[in-house]
Simulated scan of single mutants.
Amino acid sequence: MEPDVSYTTEEIAKLLKISKLTVYDLIKKGELPAYRVGKQMRVDARDLNAYKQRAKGGGMLRPEGGTAGSPDPGAATPASAIPATARANAAQLVITGQDVGLDLLARHLEKRLPGVRPLRSYAGSMDSLIAMYRGEADIVSTHLLDGDSGEYNTPYIRRLLSGFSYVIVNLVSRQAGLYVAEGNPLGLSGWPDLGRPSLRLVNREKGSGARVLLDEQLRLHAIPRERIIGYEHEETSHLAVAAKVRAGEADVGIGIEKAAAIVGVGFVPLIRERYDLVMLKTPATAPWLPAVLELLQDRDFRAELSSLQGYDVSQTGRIWLET
């Protein structure tokens, strides 16, 4: 008898040496049975071992999931290749992004669409769009500033999803800026201040919206990143960045207002960013996409979303672009 052990998606990714988004893709396709414990998805050891045996029978696992000689994991899977039990289960939607508003969206969708099981993947904006391109995500969130046009998201989406039909719709607007020590003892007030020689920065990971925002502002203000102390010091969330500033391990970080309020650190607002959702328009998304757009217009949902500090819902549900 196999031990009564289960694994998180992060543990599965490490064990199989694949990305967490690929794990979600396997769950979504019914190839790796999973169940929810609170907000977390888990996979039993016996199901993992069964999957590994099937993978060995079809070839070696590729670094990004699937087997050698098998179709790309982002490609559509024929219905005949999905177990009957998986087809009978609820459809699984992978929602990527780190904002708490996405957790709220997932809960409301689960109530509104009984046949849908939302899965949350905590990926950055750029990684989320790449996951959508590869077929590993269904609803992606993004807040990527194009410094040249001053526009959020659309320039990046046009380039990355060229040839796809999609819809870009607003979830919230929110203030982004600088995390500083309480009382702002260094008197930081704008992007040019990041060029101060002795200033210590704590950064976000590559591909995150906050990292893109920082890099675009450094470029626009001609501040060489090589001269910034701590530019290579990366954290993977707004909360972690704010916590480093509060602890005195850095003088400044980039992030959103809500995290500053939670951690209890000073905040200098510099830009109002658009936090949008992107969904592909395909036969597979047709059963649930209209319900998502309808939910974003729902008065109760918007009221609950607006109760989260620092969120502006005046544009929630507005479609910025539909191709």
Results as ranks from 00 to 15, higher is better:
Met1Pro: 14
Asp4Lys: 15
Val5Pro: 09
Ser6Met: 09
Tyr7Glu: 03
Thr8Phe: 03
Ile12His: 06
Ala13Glu: 09
Leu16Phe: 10
Lys17His: 12
Lys17Asn: 15
Ser19Val: 10
Val23Ala: 05
Asp25Met: 11
Leu26Arg: 09
Ile27Ser: 00
Ala34Ser: 07
Val37Tyr: 07
Val43Asn: 04
Val43Arg: 02
Val43Ala: 06
Asp44Val: 00
Ala45Asp: 14
Asp47Ile: 00
Asp47Glu: 05
Gln53Phe: 05
Gly57Lys: 15
Gly58Phe: 10
Met60Asp: 10
Pro63Cys: 06
Glu64Arg: 01
Glu64Gly: 02
Thr67Pro: 13
Gly74Cys: 01
Pro78Met: 05
Pro78Leu: 09
Ala79Asp: 06
Ala84Lys: 14
Ala86Ile: 05
Arg87Ile: 09
Ala91Glu: 10
Gln92Thr: 15
Ile95Ala: 00
Thr96Ala: 01
Gln98Trp: 00
Asp99Leu: 03
Asp99Asn: 11
Leu102Glu: 02
Leu105Phe: 05
His108Met: 04
His108Tyr: 12
Leu109Ala: 13
Arg112Ser: 08
Pro118Cys: 02
Leu119Pro: 00
Tyr122Val: 02
Ser125Phe: 01
Ile130Gly: 02
Val140Glu: 07
Thr142Phe: 04
Asn153Val: 02
Ile157Asn: 02
Arg158Asp: 09
Leu160Gln: 05
Tyr166Cys: 09
Val167Gln: 08
Val167Asp: 11
Ile168Met: 04
Asn170Tyr: 04
Ser173Met: 13
Ser173Tyr: 10
Arg174Asn: 14
Arg174Trp: 09
Ala176Trp: 15
Gly177Gln: 03
Ala181Asp: 05
Gly183Ser: 09
Asn184Gly: 02
Asn184Ala: 00
Gly187His: 11
Ser189Thr: 15
Ser189His: 13
Ser189Pro: 07
Gly190Val: 06
Gly190Met: 04
Gly195Asn: 09
Pro197Ser: 10
Leu199Cys: 10
Leu199Val: 11
Leu201Asp: 07
Leu201Glu: 01
Val202Tyr: 02
Val202Gly: 09
Val202Pro: 06
Lys206Pro: 00
Asp215Lys: 08
Gln217Asn: 11
Leu220Lys: 13
His221Asp: 00
Ile223Met: 10
Arg227Ala: 08
Ile228Lys: 00
Ile228Ala: 06
Ile228Gly: 04
Glu232Asp: 13
Glu234Asp: 14
Val241Arg: 03
Ala243Gln: 11
Lys244Glu: 14
Arg246Trp: 15
Gly248Pro: 05
Asp251Gln: 07
Val252Ala: 05
Gly255Trp: 08
Lys258Phe: 13
Ile262Phe: 13
Ile262Met: 15
Gly264Thr: 13
Phe267Cys: 01
Phe267His: 09
Phe267Pro: 03
Val268Tyr: 02
Leu270Glu: 07
Leu270His: 03
Arg272His: 10
Arg274Tyr: 12
Val278Pro: 12
Lys281Ala: 08
Thr282Ser: 14
Ala286Leu: 11
Leu293Pro: 10
Leu293Ala: 14
Leu295Ile: 10
Asp298Glu: 08
Ala303Lys: 13
Ala303Gln: 15
Ser306His: 12
Gln315Thr: 14
Arg318Lys: 15
Arg318Trp: 15
Trp320Leu: 14
Trp320His: 14
Leu321Lys: 04
Glu322Tyr: 06
Thr323Tyr: 07
